[in-house]
Design a protein around this nucleic acid. Structure first.
Lengths: 245, 245
DNA sequence: CGAAACGTTGACTTGTTTCAATAACTGTGG
DNA sequence: CCACAGTTATTGAAACAAGTCAACGTTTCG
């Protein structure tokens, strides 16, 4: 007996926006044909590569980043199970960023042609995918605001809270905390800070009994205090039931 | 005799990605029914508003921004003629950002239902719109990198060069410069800097005969020098002929 | 067991902000 | 046509946040 498609984190996510029919679920399922595995640390997609496939992440964490000529790195976002990845690349001639698995990753390969074909068969799916892309963009926007207008402390906390919220949505986190495979260096490159400074901020958070980041775990010692400190409001994640029926 | 739809900056932009048929151009044209005018300074869309319409900008400049609880503002991006605006808002339950015209603006209103209807009739259009959204996201990503990993000087120059490249694409700028209705305050809020510091950076650029920002004009005194200084590379704008035929 | 990656801390330097004061524009009404 | 208010631009001095360099401790993994 096949596992119901509705179980896939991706279908669950799209279903949160558009109430999908059985036919649509079936078309979605067809996208999941090619399952692939990637080891940690080996780029799945790199700048300038001509990409024919996007991926839907089934397990593991990846990050998207760019490297500047001087060698500095800026991580744009992280993908967790259920997230689309590299969608921008298949629509463009060449990838404009790198994608690196931070852990061992399993993902379904989606060819550009499959996707366009699926859109032709069910335009509602196109709307749902457009929504997913828009939601990703909303997260990048919030990240931009985080870096542009918040100091290191607020920025760090806001980021870790957002990650928590996203993980809760797919059952990988609680208000107590979550497993987090990020090093302080990775965190620094995401936050636009130096690793040394991230370390100092994490120490302060620990000393103030707000948050403990250690041994691959994030522990919210005082969730409400953190929400207040970071002025965290997750309206931009838009996660509250199908809009389109 | 009606003006050919191909003339609209929006159609021209989509046409740059997908080679559209006459039927598709006609469907696009139908989206341009309701033409509206907005005065400068009066928000077209604001945070929390339930939005039923997006706009395609015909003339003028607008900016999208968020205000933080402390009152700080971060401008996420600017839209110039031909750009989509507020697309993320119609797919979401509520707008997650504000949109303010910086000049008098004319724009075509596009209802969510019209758009979904257009997708149903020509899925290729959905792909084209997805591309446009992806391109917008690519710009936000570059903006993020700009703020996260470049110092004030590089950041400012990179931003003004990108704006120039976008304006050249719609015939509103050259390598010599362009008309730019942004104040130093607006620029500061876009770059994640203080207005005072932006002023100092602009002075240095003027003194080094690289760029003059004055009286609503940006003049590239040394275009190549600027490109080198900012390590500017516009691959991410992906502007080089239809990919999908 | 050793090497490499990751984490921690202090001292010092730099880029950027803040505050404050003044000057130059822009548009409006007398 | 000028006076005025409001916005925008300019500059200096002092304060501050974050970066850099450098050394050392700790964990992880082959």
């Amino acid at each position: 007996m096949p596992i119901p498609v509705q179980e896939s984190p991706f279908a669950r996510k799209l279903g949160a926006y558009v109430a999908l029919t059985d036919t649509e679920f079936a078309i979605l399922a067809a996208l999941h044909k090619r399952r692939r595995i990637f080891p940690a640390g080996q780029d799945m997609i790199y700048q300038g590569q001509s990409v024919r496939a996007a991926y839907i992440l089934a397990s593991g964490w990846v990050c998207s980043y760019k490297i500047l000529p001087g060698g500095a790195r800026q991580i744009v976002d992280f993908q967790i199970p259920g997230d689309f990845l590299g969608l921008r690349s298949i629509l463009f001639r060449a990838a404009d960023h790198n994608v690196e698995p931070l852990t061992r990753v399993t993902a379904s390969e989606v060819l550009a042609s499959d996707l366009i074909d699926a859109f032709t068969r069910t335009p509602r799916l196109a709307t749902a995918v457009l929504w997913a892309v828009s939601r990703d963009e909303a997260m990048v926007v919030e990240h931009l605001i985080n870096i542009g207008r918040r100091d290191a402390m607020q920025r760090t906390v806001h980021f870790l809270l957002e990650l928590g919220a996203r993980l809760m949505l797919v059952g990988l986190g609680t208000k107590e905390g979550y497993a987090c495979p990020l090093s302080q260096y990775v965190l620094a490159d995401a936050l636009g800070l130096s690793a040394v400074h991230v370390n100092r901020i994490l120490r302060q958070l620990r000393e103030r009994h707000l948050l403990t980041f250690r041994n691959g775990k994030v522990i919210f010692d005082d969730f409400d205090g953190l929400v207040e400190l970071a002025e965290f409001d997750l309206a931009y994640l838009d996660q509250s039931g199908p809009l389109l029926r």
